[in-house]
């Protein structure tokens, strides 16, 4: 983004300075987890996961319920400190940055988006500008323009004056994605961005983020349940099971029938969509058969 640095303080630019050269190269690593292990209480939810989130690409994190997808995202965002291993942003440990410096470069959209008071859609999207603004400053014309552009990106302009509580689940989700966009991040971490969305909006949202990844060189990491969406939109996929990586690479490498069957404990068919040639993943209805053959299931 050409105008990205203008709203920032000099120290933010200084932090970026040493990394900006390598970041401009294609596919350079924006965020990296190295053997990260983390969890809640005494139970590890993520075990020794190492991944790169690269600029200009969309990384999908998939796996069954409880595989540790959201926890991994929380580790990447700095919300959860790993017990062991590290997370690096632009080559530096995440702990070296203060929260504002992180917020200027990384946007996170949680799975659920509660909000306490009746803020309008526009107000929520403008919150994305907060890391770039001083405590006493009102949003400038440029901040407003960025927020409007983000609203337009997700077809939210007609809802700008509505209270967030009046929206449907899908509309609300799009508002929070627009807020992340208004943050003008280098890295976007999205937890289940396609939850609550219908097919058209799923396609649109992943399409938008793909486009942003390519055009603005944003590094996007998103957890998702829909394996076909992952195969369709992601450049690379991390397949998780029980907190550990079970497959990592381009969709056709990571999402093989063999791996998926093992990870999901169910027979999976992986083929090609005859219309587009894209990867098509379907469950095989083997549940009944396996129950007869294997009573322990």
């Amino acid at each position: 983004m050409a105008d990205q640095a203008t709203g920032e303080t000099t120290d933010a630019r200084a932090i970026r300075g040493d990394a900006s050269e390598c970041l401009s190269a294609p596919g350079e690593v924006a965020l990296r987890a190295i053997k990260a292990t983390a969890g809640y209480g005494g139970r590890a939810a993520v075990r020794e996961v190492s991944i790169d989130v690269r600029r200009g690409e969309l990384l999908a994190i998939v796996g069954p319920n409880g595989a540790g997808k959201s926890t991994l995202l929380r580790v990447l965002s700095g919300a959860l400190t790993p017990w062991s291993g590290t997370v690096e942003m632009a080559g530096r440990p995440l702990g070296d940055y203060d929260r504002r410096a992180i917020a200027r470069r990384m946007a996170t959209v949680a799975q659920e988006n509660p909000i306490a008071f009746r803020f309008t859609v526009m107000e929520v999207v403008l919150m994305g500008r907060a890391p770039h603004l001083g405590a006493w400053r009102f949003e400038s014309a440029r901040d407003l323009a960025i927020a409007r552009e983000a609203l337009d990106h997700f077809d939210l302009a007609p809802l700008a004056g509505r209270a967030i509580q009046e929206l449907s689940g899908g509309e609300r989700k799009r508002v929070f994605l627009a807020r992340a966009l208004a943050q003008r991040p280098e890295i976007a971490l999205l937890d289940e961005p396609s939850a609550f969305l219908d097919m058209r909006h799923v396609a649109e949202i992943f399409g938008r983020f793909r486009e942003l990844a390519e055009r603005e060189r944003i590094a996007v990491a998103a957890t998702m349940h829909d394996l076909n969406a992952a195969a369709l939109y992601a450049d690379r996929v991390l397949l998780m099971k029980n907190g550990a990586a079970a497959g990592y690479g381009r969709p056709e490498e990571a999402l093989t029938a063999e791996r998926l069957s093992a990870v999901y404990d169910t027979e999976v068919y992986v083929g090609r969509n005859p219309a587009t040639g894209a990867l098509a993943i379907l469950p095989i209805d083997a549940a009944r058969r396996s129950r007869i053959n294997n009573p322990r299931d």
Binding site: A79, A110, A116, A130
Partner: peptide, 20 residues
Amino acid sequence: ARDLNLLSLGDEEATHLGVE
């Protein structure tokens, strides 16, 4: 005041928007 606005989103979201 602006940080208090961000806190309406929850502690973790506020953190992601730069609030300590």
